[in-house]
């Protein structure tokens, strides 16, 4: 089995659905960090058979809100001095900007250049979002 050193200080994004790690890496723009980042694909998981994990070393601030939309089962552990000091709870973000695209052909987003695709949470229980322009629904 591949070994990745334990973190002394940093963040572990765990229980990522296998295959989604790279997408999350891109969404969180981890390529822009100059600290040590490990993306582990297909790690063994007792629950799901396999999973992806991302480990980020150092004292960094990342906006994890988007992960609540991608997969609420993801866990985020903040590590300090080699121990988990905080487990962040994921919630659905109120607003999604350029995460999903409006597919309504009647929406202004279908023709306007450089327009942000913005969705607002309208029902957190049913995980439903609406395009702010045309109110087209998107279910997460």
């Amino acid at each position: 089995m591949l070994n990745i050193d334990s973190l002394q200080k940093g963040i572990v994004i765990d229980h990522i659905e296998a295959g989604m790690g790279m997408k999350i890496y891109d969404l969180l723009k981890l390529d822009e960090l100059d600290c040590c980042v490990a993306l582990i694909k297909n790690a063994r998981s007792s629950k799901h058979g396999k999973k992806d994990i991302i480990k980020i070393e150092g004292d960094i601030t990342i906006d994890f809100e988007i992960l609540g939309f991608i997969d609420p089962n993801i866990t985020i552990d903040v590590i300090d001095d080699g121990k988990i000091v905080e487990k962040k709870k994921l919630v659905l973000p109120e607003v999604l900007t350029n995460v999903i695209k409006c597919k309504n052909p009647r929406c202004i987003t279908s023709i306007e250049e450089e327009i942000d695709h913005i969705f607002r949470l309208c029902d957190s229980e049913k995980r439903r979002y609406r395009c702010i322009y045309c109110e087209q629904e998107y279910q997460a």
Binding site: N104, R106, C107, I108, T109, S110, I111, E112, I115, C131, I132, Y133, C134, E135
Partner: peptide, 24 residues
């Protein structure tokens, strides 16, 4: 197109009134 006046409002320096945006 639905939402066009909202788009306009975000960039406008004068009040924008939606006089009908598609079927919206």
């Amino acid at each position: 197109k639905e939402g066009a006046p909202m788009r306009a409002a975000r960039y406008s320096r004068i009040p924008v009134i939606n006089a009908g945006d598609g079927g919206h």
